[in-house]
Design a protein around this nucleic acid. Sequence first.
DNA 1: CCGAAATAATACGGAACCGAAACGATCCGG
DNA 2: CCGGATCGTTTCGGTTCCGTATTATTTCGG
Lengths: 120, 120
Amino acid sequence: MPVELRPLEALTLWHRVTLDLVREDGQDLSHDLSARQLAILLTIYLEPPPHTVRGLAGKLGVTKPVITRALDTMGRLDLVARRRDDADRRNVVIQRTVKGALAVERLGDLIVAHGRVLPR
Amino acid sequence: MPVELRPLEALTLWHRVTLDLVREDGQDLSHDLSARQLAILLTIYLEPPPHTVRGLAGKLGVTKPVITRALDTMGRLDLVARRRDDADRRNVVIQRTVKGALAVERLGDLIVAHGRVLPR
DNA sequence: CCGAAATAATACGGAACCGAAACGATCCGG
DNA sequence: CCGGATCGTTTCGGTTCCGTATTATTTCGG
């Protein structure tokens, strides 16, 4: 049943990476990062700036307080940083950090490493 | 810089799938499922049974109450089920459910769909 | 200028989760 | 048969997060 093969491999990849994330815990990343927090983190580091609270809330389909709180948490972990926009001081511009960049990079390496189970 | 290409694509895949998971919310899956809960769910559905609380705790490197609570939550969502082991009534055997199988299957399809961005 | 609009943050009550420890139920070797 | 070991659950105090509603600050059109 070659049709079933691809989804199973995709799930296997997801499974192994997630397991690694959970087990690393003490490390910078994860510590049981929620799906929302991870989505925010990846958006900040993969999509072109600037990123705002409102923009992220819209993109994820969640309310603004969710973003604010996630930024509080990830800011405490030094994964992201906040700065007032001088052009429009109502806005907060979310900035990347060295630690956050390293964490995202490490996640990429992790996926690639486990991706070797996939054919081709 | 062809060296950077693969990790970036892997992260892009992860990003898009995670975004979909967060946005689906109301659906069966996610509702901001934690990394731990997802790891447990995938272990149950991808690795051969039987699965026990102690076994899962060991595999994930977390304490038993963490597993118990995650099973409570996911059981409430009907993603997994618990049953006493008749052979050894101290054990609890974690069982799959139709709803859980569908959710995992849907995740697999989601990854495959977004995986089309990856070359080859 | 000044009031409406927009932005992010905060307050609030409720729910979930954490780690550590204690607890009941069950098994099993001697 | 019984005492230790094993297993899953529960309890405890504390922390975090949720959604909704509200607040403070800033911008901008008329």
